[in-house]
């Protein structure tokens, strides 16, 4: 099974670092081009809304940020399974690198939503099901980041975080279906619907391009975060090795770390 073998090879941190080094410049360039095209379409091609006027342009950053807040949590949950079932260090690394990126996009979603809500709804915030469940998602991210920092040993931290992450995944369908299950001020889904999108193509296409641009950017940031986390663990183990050698009165040159 050569394909399975090559997948296992990628799970080796050193090979993963090589792959990340090769992929990152391409992903970064692709994200930059897509963002430039998306911003052009958002500002110069998409028309103002017949009711909301120019304010509708907030949608082109608010919606992709919301999607990515959810997407990064789903990625984190898949990695949490990798941590608990296979106890793979790369799954730990993927979990840890995803949390700040997901938190940042959820924060952007909340603030831009508020900035869109004030002129359209007449209020910065309401405690309706959609807004509250997204706020819970943001607080989950902060809790997960705090737990990573609270436990010194990365392997123990990863298992604790994985359990917390998998408990929190119940919030994802609640966020998605909150606008259908409860009466909310937030509008219902307009893109991913069984009967097709309800947005006019002149606004749908800029939105989709921006969503793809944000997704490529988030994948690049996640890959960069995973690379940094692997290096951080190397620094940690090298420092521990050096400290042990100094304790034992051995010259560092004779030592080695994992």
């Amino acid at each position: 099974m050569p394909r399975l073998t090559s997948l296992w090879n990628l799970a080796n941190p050193t090979r993963f670092l090589g792959l990340a080094d090769r992929l990152l410049p391409w992903l970064a360039a692709l994200a930059a081009v897509l963002l430039a095209v998306g911003l052009y379409l958002s500002f110069f091609v998409a028309p103002p809304d017949y009711q909301q006027g120019e304010t509708v342009r907030i949608m082109f950053v608010h919606v992709p940020a919301a999607w990515l807040g959810l997407f990064m949590y789903v990625m984190m949950s898949a990695s949490a399974l990798g941590t608990l079932v296979w106890r793979h260090p790369l799954a730990d690394v993927a979990q840890k690198a995803a949390a700040p990126i997901g938190a940042a996009f959820t924060f952007v979603c909340l603030v831009t939503g508020s900035l869109w809500g004030k002129p359209m709804w007449g209020t910065w915030w309401v405690w309706d099901a959609r807004l509250t469940s997204v706020l819970v998602l943001f607080l989950m991210y902060l809790g997960i980041i705090a737990l990573w920092r609270a436990v010194d040993d990365p392997a123990r931290a990863a298992r604790a975080v994985a359990v917390l992450t998998l408990v929190g995944v119940v919030n994802i369908p609640i966020i998605k279906f909150s606008v259908d299950w409860w009466s909310t001020l937030h509008q219902p889904a307009a893109v991913f619907r069984i009967d097709g999108p309800t947005i006019h193509p002149s606004m749908l296409w800029p939105l989709l391009v921006m969503a793809v641009a944000f997704t490529v950017l988030a994948i690049a940031l996640h890959l960069a975060g995973m690379r940094n986390e692997i290096l951080r663990r190397r620094v940690r183990s090298l420092r521990l090795m050096e400290a042990e050698q100094l304790d034992a009165g051995v010259e560092p040159a004779a030592g080695a770390a994992r």
Binding site: P48, G53, E54, T55, R57, I58, V61, H62, A65, V108, V111, T112, L115, W116, K118, P119
Partner: peptide, 14 residues
Amino acid sequence: DPHTGFIVASYALT
């Protein structure tokens, strides 16, 4: 647009 400030703030924050 009367709401330009909200749009600029959204893009600036992002």
